[in-house]
Design a binder for these strands. Structure first.
Ligand SMILES: [Zn+2]
Ligand SMILES: [Zn+2]
Ligand SMILES: [Zn+2]
Ligand SMILES: [Zn+2]
Lengths: 167, 167
DNA sequence: CGCCATGTGATATAAGATAACACTATGGCT
DNA sequence: AGCCATAGTGTTATCTTATATCACATGGCG
């Protein structure tokens, strides 16, 4: 499959409950396959991260947990996020100090993101050969790449229309 | 000139004072040309950021300022950094919440970095066509890119040798 | 049963960044 | 010179993000 992402994923535009339940289903399969334990806490945090397609901060997750009546402290959330990161179930968006669900966990991939400064949505893309290109150039300089962070900020098509000129 | 960066820039390996004085000289020229004021504070912070080729945190700069006998508070540093960022004199390394001097200020460029997890050095590179490639792919999805963040973490050649296996 | 590994709860604190307000320096103008 | 507007600084307090630490629980296993 090529990049299956669409841009400007407003929650109203699609059955987002599917996004969430699919994500949980994928996570359960993947954890079972890898012998990892998707505990209650971890599952809940993953669900909360998937509440939207915009990256969500750790403390926002914490707020949501508390609103659900769960007594939680920062480490609760960070530990769950750490687990989810390790298993590729979420990615960290460095330019926002926030986290977003990965739509294709399990397949190794360098996460590449388009981040809309208007609506906040993050769209994970994969530009063919891009990661390879960086590794190759780094190797020429004797540098061994372990992880890549590629984030492009700007405006999605919808947000370009809403805020066209120097409004 | 192609990428003139070398990797693994230990301070002992080269006359780093040149790196610093060159950076200041470039900054002064550039500010004069742009009608921007490189005040004492800003110049000092730029110098401190250039103390090494490893990105330096805002609070490290603050520490250094204080050791130089200058009374400063966080906003002092952040304001200076903001100015330097605006004028392209430093770049922010998102994966480290830190700042590093730009070796080619004045020329618009999407900063791309190799970040060594061993020695901490940051090497700015420019992979031909990479930025364009991302913009093009984004445009196909209707997304207008404003800024890009490209950071590759790993080990420079020297640090690969020092820490070869699972040491 | 005792032991170890993994996960959790709770408190405190570190690290990074900004808000707000008062004051000063600078340069253009009359 | 005196005045003004703008840009820059000092200071304090606060906010946001992330970890360290220690105590407790749970479950597998010799
Ligand atoms: Zn959705
Ligand atoms: Zn948008
Ligand atoms: Zn140098
Ligand atoms: Zn190194």
């Amino acid at each position: 499959m090529a990049t299956r992402a669409t841009v400007g994923l407003r929650l109203k535009d699609h059955d987002h409950h599917h996004c969430i339940s699919d994500a949980i289903a994928r996570a359960e399969m993947l954890c079972q396959r890898n012998g990892a334990r998707l505990t209650e806490n971890r599952r809940r945090v993953l669900e909360l991260v998937w509440q939207s397609h915009a990256p969500v901060g750790a403390y926002e997750v914490l707020e949501m947990l508390r609103k659900d009546g769960i007594r939680a402290a920062p480490p609760t959330v960070y530990r769950a996020l750490e687990f989810l990161l390790e298993h590729g179930l979420v990615h960290r968006i460095e330019t926002r100090n926030a986290f977003v669900g990965c739509p294709q966990p399990g397949q190794a991939h360098a996460a590449q993101y388009l981040l809309c400064d208007g609506c906040g949505d993050a769209v994970e893309i994969e530009i063919g050969g891009l990661a390879r290109r960086i590794e190759t150039r780094a190797a020429e300089l004797g540098f061994a790449v372990a992880t890549q962070t590629i984030e492009a900020r700007g405006l999605c098509s919808r947000c370009q229309q809403s805020a066209p000129a120097g409004a």
